[in-house]
Write a protein that binds this DNA or RNA. Structure first.
Length: 478
RNA sequence: UCCUCCUUAGCUCAGUUGGUUAGAGCAUCUGACUGUUAAUCAGAGGGUCGUUGGUUCAAGUCCAACAGGGGGAGCCA
């Protein structure tokens, strides 16, 4: 281990005539002589040249796709044209064999669907190597952005008793024997007997707890796993996903939008600067995919071009009401091309409408604000018009909603009134309402789906391919 | 959850109006070759046609249910 160098460094340094040991996994072994070795530090392989005439044939036979090896030798300028430098090996050690009859990865293109079924091995492919290195960089950039701005990283609870967020179906957390849970005299499950003395669930959002932190530290963010027991079977939903939720005191809706836009641009720029090679690989991969699509469906921009375009352009900001007007007068609405016609103010926008606005009309990210109160959550600040709330959704091309946020209702009476209207347990939520009872102030926040961000940056199209081990309905393998 | 399409070798896919022994490329194995880049060339092995039931003299092919997967929709991040 002492002498080991990472392949990324060997390739980056571009130096020659020095001794080095590298360790990694064999991608292919060509001509009984050339090993394409990958150690996960970069998508590029190091070519290890074996002196096959002076190597034990028994060792040569064990250099198979997937095997872990250690190679020591001299880094020299390559005679071949595919790489600048290579390792002229003087000794090869097999660290772990890989039975070629059984190892599922071959040196060829595999379908993403197949690789999803072997998610524990797909990290060893170029595509997933790049995707998960980019994911890491984005996660790091999230923390760096907020840390540099003085936000406090607050760990909100994973297990919650609150069922008032209204953000969807929840997973129950219990230690009861499912065969025979304790029951009350009425024959109902007696949650008082459960571990926490009450019914508990996995969190669907850290927002409400986050608000209590914002009303002390000023600015906080959460970044953790989130769980939704919805029976959603789409390329952009997971039952377990990672969400970033900043919450800021003294921010109004505009401050909130400014922060969200700055944040998204920051992390994208950070990935472009620190994962250029991986993004170039993913871009090339995407371009290859595009070739097999019909002309009309091809995207106009390459991956990196698309990311730079987002960095260099302001997000379009319009109100829900303006969006409805645009959609009403749009060609697909007049020609009845929409599956759902846009007729009246007040209904929620369908995916096809959001896609039209983002991908056809404005051709850039769009921030929609001031939605009808009836289709948004109880905690959003009510506008003076009595109809709309200070909500904002950020819509991205190909992804849809990547951010959902709002200015929060800081007026205790208005908030309680709204909760009573919706039949929410006001008593139980005393701790949340205390933020409005004691030193209430204007504040805002948003939630950003991390995997949706990774989807956009990597150019992948299925959310199951940007989280290591996806949890979806009927799937919790690995 | 709804609509729709798909499920044939380890992988990607052919398989005609239902008809005799189900094919190809890649991978694997054996051999040849050795500065290769998903190496190349020759040969070989490899199949409960997703599962169950039905129609028929006969089912990979037709029908039904179920399971899994893709695409779209809803819910949302």
């Amino acid at each position: 281990m002492s002498q080991r160098v990472k392949i990324k460094q060997v390739l980056h340094d571009d130096a020659v005539q020095y001794t080095a040991t590298v360790k990694g996994w064999v991608r292919t072994f060509r001509s009984n002589r050339f090993i394409a070795l990958n150690d996960g530090s970069t998508n590029n392989n190091l070519q290890v040249v074996v002196d096959f005439e002076n190597t034990d044939p028994a060792i040569l036979k064990r250099i198979t796709t997937g095997a872990a090896i250690s190679a020591t030798g001299t880094i020299v300028a390559s005679q071949g044209s595919g790489q600048k430098v290579e390792l002229q090996a003087t000794s090869i050690e097999i660290l772990g064999d890989s039975d070629p009859e059984k190892y599922p990865l071959q040196p060829k293109k595999h379908s993403l669907e197949f690789l999803r079924e072997i998610a524990h091995l797909r990290f060893r492919t170029n595509t997933f190597g790049a995707v998960f290195r980019v994911r890491h960089t984005l996660a790091y950039a999230v923390h760096k952005f907020f840390n540099d701005k003085g936000f406090v990283y607050l760990h909100t609870p994973i297990i919650t008793a609150s069922d008032a967020e209204g953000a969807g179906e929840m997973f129950r957390v219990t230690t009861f024997d499912p065969q025979k849970p304790p029951v009350t005299e009425e024959g109902k499950v007696d949650w008082k007997e459960d571990f926490f003395g009450r019914a508990t669930n996995l969190t669907v959002s850290g927002q409400l707890e986050g608000e209590t932190g914002a009303m002390a530290f000023g600015e906080i963010y959460t970044f953790g796993p989130t769980f939704r027991a919805e029976n959603s079977n789409t390329a952009r939903h997971l039952a377990e996903f990672w969400m970033i939720e900043p919450e800021m005191a003294f921010y109004n809706l505009e401050d909130n939008m400014n922060l969200a836009e700055e944040f998204i641009k920051y992390v994208i720029r950070y990935a472009l600067e620190h994962n250029r090679e991986d993004l170039e690989f993913l871009g090339a991969r995407l371009a290859e995919e595009e070739k097999s699509k019909p002309q009309a469906e091809r995207s106009e921009m390459g991956l990196i071009e698309k990311l730079e375009f987002v960095l260099n352009n302001d997000f379009m900001r319009i109100t829900y009401t303006e969006a409805i007007d645009i959609l009403k007068n749009s060609k697909p609405n007049k020609n009845k091309k929409f599956q759902y016609m846009v007729e009246e103010w007040g209904t929620d926008l369908q995916s096809e409408h959001e896609r039209y606005l983002v991908e056809k009309h404005f051709k850039k990210p769009v921030i929609l604000t001031d939605y009808p109160a009836a289709i948004k959550s109880f905690y959003m600040k009510q506008n003076e018009d009595g109809k709309t709330v200070r909500a904002m959704d950020i819509l991205f091309p190909g992804i849809g909603e990547i951010v959902g946020g709002s200015q929060r209702e800081e007026n205790l009476d208005k908030l309680v009134h709204k909760m009573e209207e919706l039949g929410l347990p006001v008593e139980e939520m005393y701790w949340y309402l205390d933020t409005r009872r004691f030193g209430s102030a204007e504040h805002s926040g948003f939630g950003l789906g991390f995997e949706r961000l990774v989807l956009f940056v990597t150019g992948m199209t299925n959310i199951r391919d940007v989280i290591p081990f996806p949890r979806t309905p009927k799937n919790a393998e690995f």
